[in-house]
């Protein structure tokens, strides 16, 4: 990639790392929440649902600020992590991954919930009569059948995560080589004199990645649906 400057390819790599970590960390929680929200009516389910979707309606800066409050070294969770496990999220790429995860979480939960609602409950009943207990049923019937939604959610979240800006810059700042992801590098280039060409290259790259992600999501979705005979 010699048409990119070292700083630019670093930003690309960092974006990929941050988005991957963010998605992987959020995945189990997203599956669990999608399952809880679509299969169970419990006290507070409306509140939980709203909470999951909050990042969609909140200005990203506010999300970043809230993350700063809770996961900063003086925040409730951040302080505890720092003291007991020596984990620091603020100003680190893992912090960027967390901000990405929170911002893209609604996409994942939404896609998974939709596909979970399409899973025929009768098939789970059939599994029961074949001797499958609750965990067994979930792993061998429910999970494979909601696979299209999981894939769609993961790819959408990943693509969106590559370009997460507001929450990331607020929470972990703009540190070259640590938290300066693609959009942050683009923003920096626009701020510096003579950075137009770099900005254009970074924007083009973001565009390409985004389109690739959406096409891949659609293609995988069709493939898995065909596999499931729908």
């Amino acid at each position: 990639m010699n048409w990119l400057s070292p700083g630019e390819s670093e930003a690309l790599q960092l974006s990929l790392i941050v988005a991957t970590r963010g998605v992987l960390a959020a995945l189990p929680f997203a599956v669990l929440l999608a399952w809880m929200l679509s299969r169970h009516r419990f006290v507070g389910s409306i509140v939980l649902d709203a909470l999951v979707h909050l990042p969609l309606v909140l200005p990203p800066v506010v999300t970043g600020y809230l993350l700063l409050l809770t996961f900063g070294t003086r925040g409730a969770i951040g302080g505890w992590l720092d003291r007991t496990l020596d984990i620091r999220l603020i100003f680190t790429r893992n912090g960027a991954a967390l901000a990405t995860a929170v911002m893209t979480f609604p996409f994942m939960v939404r896609a998974m919930r939709l596909s979970l609602e399409n899973v025929d409950r009768g098939l789970e009943d059939a599994a029961r009569t074949l001797g499958a207990g609750p965990l067994d049923r979930f792993a061998t019937v429910t999970l494979p059948l909601m696979l299209p939604g999981i894939l769609a959610g993961v790819i959408t979240a990943f693509s969106a995560g590559l370009g997460e800006f507001g929450a990331v810059i607020t929470f972990v700042s703009n540190i070259p080589g640590e938290t300066r992801t693609l959009p942050l590098a683009l923003y920096t280039a626009l701020q510096s004199p003579g950075g137009d060409a770099a900005a254009a290259r970074l924007a083009g790259m973001s565009l390409t990645l985004g389109v690739c992600g959406l096409v891949l999501a659609e293609w995988l979705g069709r493939r898995t649906r065909r596999m499931l005979g729908r």
């Binding site: 059939a126 009569t129 499931l228």
Partner: peptide, 13 residues
């Protein structure tokens, strides 16, 4: 107890 459903309910995956 074995159960044969009206709509078979085979696992599509």
């Amino acid at each position: 107890i074995g159960y044969v459903f009206q709509d078979a309910r085979l696992f599509p995956h």
